[in-house]
């Protein structure tokens, strides 16, 4: 990356990070097609050509924003997997997710629109796969906790994984799109899930 005339080392890393932050906001607000590299540059206070110096193309920029955003989110919900019961693990996961959406709103905005962007832009289908890998690791772990603890004894691990995925991601998307959380929604959803698991 160290080309002639460019700031080296720390400065360059700092500029890249500023570009990624501005790009995340721009993609989140306007979508991939509607996002403008020129306005990302002007928000950072650099020339558009500087962005292409670091990221070659809008496509590459989007991919890098995804990688950085996605690791930040999934790395911070991962500790939630360490729990004795499925219901406790889900409670932890929703708590962490809520905290992240509050602290880093543009991360949630960006990630929420990834599935449709990837569908419309086949060059991003690899990102969808990476997203699925992150999710699968977490939700499969939760499912195995539930099966091991005996909380779920009527579903296969695959079925339990998908049910948990729909509950957690449904909560995430509903909360995200409404821009406000229905009070006690996480607690209520877990309470009802517990009730349905225990009723027969």
């Amino acid at each position: 990356m160290a080309k002639r005339g460019r700031p080296a080392g720390a400065d360059s890393e700092q500029t890249k990070r500023k570009i990624l932050d501005a790009a995340r906001l721009e993609f989140a607000a306007n979508g991939y097609d509607g996002a403008s590299v020129t306005s990302i540059a002007s928000n950072v206070g650099i020339a558009p050509s500087a962005i292409y110096h670091y990221f070659q193309s809008k496509e590459k920029l989007y991919t890098e924003v995804f990688k950085q955003t996605s690791s930040a989110i999934w790395d911070s919900v991962t500790p939630a997997e360490e729990a004795e019961t499925l219901l406790q693990a889900m409670t932890n996961l929703l708590d962490n997710s809520r905290q992240i959406s509050t602290d880093l709103p543009s991360h949630s905005d960006f990630l929420a629109s990834l599935p449709i962007e990837a569908r419309m832009h086949p060059e991003f289908s690899d990102l969808l796969q990476q997203r699925a890998d992150h999710q699968d690791r977490t939700f499969r772990k939760l499912a195995s906790i539930g099966i091991k603890s005996g909380e779920i004894d009527f579903l296969s691990e695959d079925e339990a994984t998908e049910l948990i995925r729909s509950i957690v991601m449904g909560w995430f998307f509903e909360r995200h799109f409404r821009q406000e959380e229905i009070p006690k929604s996480a607690e209520s959803i877990i309470a009802i899930f517990e009730h349905l698991l225990n009723t027969r």
Binding site: D158, E159, L163, G170, E174
Partner: peptide, 25 residues
């Protein structure tokens, strides 16, 4: 209502384009 809405909307957002996921859920 909130519970079933959450699960079914989650199913739509996550799986509507992926038949494997949707059928299992």
């Amino acid at each position: 209502i909130m519970f079933f809405r959450t699960v079914m909307q989650g199913w739509v957002y996550e799986g509507i384009f992926s038949r494997d996921i949707t059928l299992t859920t």
